[in-house]
Every structure is written in structure tokens, then in C-alpha cells.
Design a protein around this nucleic acid. Sequence first.
DNA 1: AACTCGGGGCA
DNA 2: TGCCCAGAGTT
Length: 216
Amino acid sequence: MLNKKGVRQVLDTLEEMFPDAKCELTHSNEFELLVAVILSAQATDALVNKVTPDLFEKYHTPEDYLAVSLEELQQDIRRIGLYRNKAKNIRKMSADLVEKYDGKVPSSYDELINLAGVGRKTANVVMSVAFDEPAIAVDTHVERVSKRLGICRWKDSVLEVEKTLMRKIPEEEWSDTHHRMIFFGRYHCKAKTPNCPECPLLEICREGQKRMKKRG
DNA sequence: AACTCGGGGCA
DNA sequence: TGCCCAGAGTT
């Protein structure tokens, strides 16, 4: 397990690599962000960004999503995986919004996560991006990077990873670090082909050193 | 904790 | 072709 100094070095290095990392989902208000994040489950943000321009031109409010049939909405997001469930979730979420919050997006984590189709990760991203609240959501990238670098243990559950990160990282750095770890995981520390030889964190990364030895 | 939904991107 | 992806609900 990485000590405090090691974690500090990781945070500083990530900042150097991705000084202005931020959510890449295109949106112009909280509601669009919420829809985009729901669509992005198990899909790449690049794909989501190809679909949302047309989608957001057609739908502007929760009422708009409820005004068409489920089948029509499903067709509109057909290019994104899991589209049948996502269309259902977007409609449930929209109905919740209209019923409980007068069609507006609530600004607390507890309210967000209680919306149908909104889970821990979606609520976290919306809080951090739309409302600028400190948040860390452990997705596949964050989990993989944290384990490889030794910020947490290999056997930690997602919840344990999240708790460890929140304990070891200063709260004011949660959001930036979250986005930077995702960028790092996507572009450098990839699941199958991590670029260890050119990694600035190689000297403190056990997994990286192990892989370099293996390669010879 | 494991399973299901799922088309597109990439090697 | 096969594997993976800014996840959530159900059992």
C-alpha cells in the first residue's frame, strides 16, 4: 500500500499530465448532463457525444421525454448500448423529476440517488460536474488505476476503494483527481495495454514494475 | 455477489 | 472476431 507521500506524488503527477481534465460529456444544463450520464453507462463518452446533439435538439425538458412513446425514445438512442433499459430509466427519472421537483434537477446527492435510474456513480458525477461538489465515483478506470498504483488493495470492493480514496485524498482534490484518474486509465493505464515504459509513475508502481520485468 | 442488458470501438 | 466500455436494477 502506498504511503501518504506516495499518494501525494500520484496526485501531483496526475495534475501534471492532465491539468484541466474534466467531464467530456457535452451538455448545456444540469438536466442534459443527467441524461448524458445515464446514457454513458457501459458506453464510451465519445459515442454518447455522437448521439446527444440530435437528442438534445429534440428533447429539452423531462416533459419532452414523457411526451413520446417509449419505443420512439428507444429508437432515438438505439446506437448506444443497453438502450432499452436506458430509455426506460430516462423516462422514470423524468417522471420523478416532474412529480417531486417540478421538473428541475435536485442539487443534493441523496435526492439524486433516489431518482429512478440514478445510482451512486451518476449521482456523484452530477454533483461534481453540475454542482461543483467534491465527489469521487469509483468506475472501472478509477478502480483499476487505484489498485495498480497501490493506493488501495487488490481485493478491495468498490465501496472499500471509494472509502480509501476519500480517506487518503484531500476533499478539495476529490473531483479533479476523479477526472484525472479516468483520463489516466483511458489513455495511459489501459486495462489490456498499459503504457508502463513511458509512465511517469513507473518508479512507484508495483504493478508496472512487475509488468516490465515480465516483458524483460 | 452474480446476472442481464447491448451496440460501437478497437486490436 | 473477441473483448471492453464514466452503470443500475433485480434476484
